[in-house]
Computed example of a mutant assay.
Amino acid sequence: MPRFISGQAVFTGFNLCFLVNISLWPRFKMVFDSHISSLRDANIKTLWEDDVHPHYVMRRYAEFTASFIHLNVEYGDGQLDINLERLRMAVDVLILKLAKLFPRPKQQIVFLINNYDMTIAVLKEAGPEGGKIQMHFEELLKSNTSLFVEELLVEHFSDLIKFVKSRASEDPSSNPERSITVAEVDPLVKDFGSRWKTAIELMHKDIITSFSNFLCGMEILRAALTQLLLYYTRLTDCIKKIPGGSGLNKDLVSIQSIMFEIRKYSKTF
């Protein structure tokens, strides 16, 4: 008798849950679709604000999504996952449209990074179950961070980067007529040596005023300084292959000095 009652109770509970799901899902789907439609049909010019910090619509999306992800952990409703993915795709399009309204590419990237970073933080607060959606925004954050690092470095070291990308990897023996000369790299060496510390300080100030999350900003600064070190290392390696290049050694900044600056800023973590 007890087993029968227990089994009957489980069966009845299952039916009740099933019936509730069937009865509520159409209404829930309608509400969910209205959220997606509101994102797709949003007036971008009305929503846009001249502010690179996280947009309120993105925060609402993050909190809404985090709540459902948390509730769905044990239940594992595949239909809900599908609709959360539809919602994610809609907000992706919206945030990109808003970003494009900023006049400068760097502002666009900063805006996206701030919104992606905030979304990840909200999803993490709800629990470790962010899953595919959290991974998606982490990938977007990573790719946009790389874009920002390049934008920032080009802003301060454009000639150095242009040379490294176009000339530093050339083999002198393959085309003697276009061999790199001391006269070609001398201005690069002297320019870097005269203002690299000032440029790094300007980069630091730019980052701390641009990014809402201090830790995210410092990670980006460290990535930028590391990339700068790589560019400069390629320049110094190139100089070693140039006839008479040793004459520039007195003007070269040591790799240890750049490493010291990187460690100095890393202490703010």
Score class of each variant (00 low, 15 high):
Gln8Asn: 01
Val122Cys: 13
Lys100Cys: 11
Phe211His: 05
Leu94Pro: 09
Phe64Ala: 03
Pro105Ile: 11
Ile82Glu: 02
Gln79Leu: 04
Ile109Asn: 07
Arg59Thr: 11
Glu151Gly: 02
Arg178Ser: 12
Ser158Leu: 09
Met1Gly: 07
Arg178Pro: 01
Ile120Ser: 13
Phe211Met: 04
Ile22Lys: 11
Thr119Trp: 07
Asp77Leu: 00
Pro176Glu: 04
Glu129Cys: 15
Ser158Met: 07
Phe211Glu: 01
Asp117Asn: 15
His204Asp: 04
Asn175Ile: 04
Ser210Arg: 09
Ile255Cys: 08
Lys100Met: 14
Arg104His: 13
Phe32Ala: 06
Glu138Gly: 03
Val110Gln: 12
Arg3Val: 05
Glu125Phe: 15
Tyr56Val: 08
Ala9Pro: 00
Lys45Ser: 14
Pro54Arg: 10
Gly127Pro: 12
Ile36Met: 02
Ser38Phe: 07
Met30Phe: 05
Val253Met: 06
Pro176Asp: 03
Asp41Ser: 15
Met58Arg: 12
Ile44Glu: 07
Gly130Phe: 10
Ser143Arg: 08
Phe157Thr: 05
Asn72Gln: 01
Ala66Ile: 06
Val10Trp: 02
Cys238Ser: 10
Asp191Thr: 13
Asp251Ala: 14
Ile255Arg: 15
Phe269Pro: 00
Phe192Asn: 02
Ser179Ile: 11
Pro172Trp: 09
Leu19Thr: 05
Cys216Ile: 09
Leu24Cys: 11
Asp159Arg: 15
Leu101Asp: 04
His136Thr: 10
Val154Ala: 05
Gly76Cys: 01
Asn175Lys: 10
Arg263Ala: 06
Gly193Pro: 04
Arg263Cys: 00
Leu153Glu: 02
Asp191Arg: 12
Glu151Pro: 01
Leu19Gln: 08
Ala183His: 13
Val122Ala: 11
Leu84Ala: 01
Val185Asn: 04
Met135Thr: 08
Ser34Gly: 01
Phe163Arg: 12
Met1Tyr: 01
Ser67Glu: 09
Ile82Thr: 02
Asp77His: 01
Ala62Cys: 09
Met203Arg: 03
Ser38Asp: 04
Ile220Val: 11
Lys267Ser: 05
Phe192Asp: 01
Phe148Ser: 03
Phe157Trp: 06
Gln256Phe: 13
Met1Phe: 03
